[in-house]
Every structure is written in structure tokens, then in C-alpha cells.
Amino acid sequence: QLNAMAHQIQEMFPQVPYHLVLQDLQLTRSVEITTDNILEGRIQVP
């Protein structure tokens, strides 16, 4: 299920590496919260 959620987020934010999306999802278990984390700059994109 997390993989499906990660792919959904990757479609919206292809610039964010998959492993970072998955790592955040493991903590949040939420597409909405992880999306917010990306938008708020809480996930550092190399």
C-alpha cells in the first residue's frame, strides 16, 4: 500500500526521489501529510 501511495505522490512531484517519498510515508502513512511535507520544504530534495 505504501508503494502505491509513493507512486501517486511521485506523479505529482517527479523531482522528489522515490526513496525520500517512501521514507516520509513510512512515518506519516498519509499521502496528504507527505504532500504537505514536500510543499512546505520539509523533505530535502538533492
Rank of each mutant, 00 (worst) to 15 (best):
L39R: 14
T35S: 09
S30L: 03
Q26D: 07
L20Q: 05
Q44R: 13
V21G: 00
L39I: 11
L20K: 05
Q26S: 09
P46I: 12
Y18L: 11
N3G: 10
V45I: 13
S30M: 03
Q26I: 14
T28D: 02
P14C: 06
M5A: 07
Q26M: 15
T34V: 02
T34R: 01
V21W: 03
R29S: 08
S30C: 07
I9G: 01
E32W: 09
L20G: 02
V45Y: 13
P17M: 05
D36Y: 14
E40K: 15
R29W: 15
V45K: 09
V21P: 01
V16Q: 02
M5P: 00
R42L: 07
I33M: 11
Q10S: 13
L2P: 03
A4S: 09
S30H: 03
D36N: 15
L39M: 09
V16E: 00
V31G: 05
L39F: 05
L25E: 01
E40Q: 15
E11H: 13
T28I: 01
V16A: 05
R42A: 05
I38C: 03
R42Q: 04
Q8I: 13
M12P: 01
V45M: 12
P14Y: 03
N37W: 03
Q8C: 11
T35P: 00
V16N: 02
T35V: 15
V31L: 10
Q8W: 12
V31I: 13
Q44E: 09
F13V: 00
P46R: 09
P17G: 03
Q23V: 07
G41N: 07
L25D: 02
R29E: 08
T28W: 08
E40A: 15
L27C: 11
L39G: 03
I9Q: 01
V16G: 00
P14S: 05
I38T: 01
T34G: 01
E11V: 13
L2V: 07
P14L: 04
Q10R: 13
M12T: 07
N3I: 15
R29Q: 13
Q8L: 13
Q1I: 14
P14M: 06
D24R: 02
P17D: 07
G41A: 05
S30R: 04
L2T: 05
E40M: 15
I9S: 01
F13G: 00
E32Q: 13
T35A: 10
S30N: 08
I33Y: 07
I9D: 00
V45S: 10
Q23M: 12
A6I: 10
F13W: 06
L25C: 05
L2Q: 04
A6N: 00
Q23I: 10
E32L: 11
T28F: 05
V31C: 09
P14G: 05
P14N: 05
P17C: 10
Q1C: 13
Q1G: 11
V31E: 05
Q1P: 10
D24E: 03
M5Y: 09
F13L: 03
H7D: 10
E32N: 08
E40H: 14
V45W: 14
L20E: 05
E32H: 08
P14V: 04
F13R: 01
I43F: 08
E40I: 08
D24P: 05
H7S: 11
E11F: 12
I9W: 02
P46V: 11
N3A: 15
E32Y: 10
P46T: 11
E40W: 13
A6V: 10
V31T: 06
A6S: 04
Q1K: 13
Q15M: 12
V16M: 10
E11L: 15
I38E: 01
V45L: 12
V21K: 00
M12Y: 07
L2G: 02
Q1N: 14
R29G: 13
Q23G: 07
N37C: 03
Q15K: 10
M5K: 06
T28N: 03
T35K: 12
L27E: 11
S30P: 01
V21A: 05
N37D: 00
P46Y: 11
M5H: 04
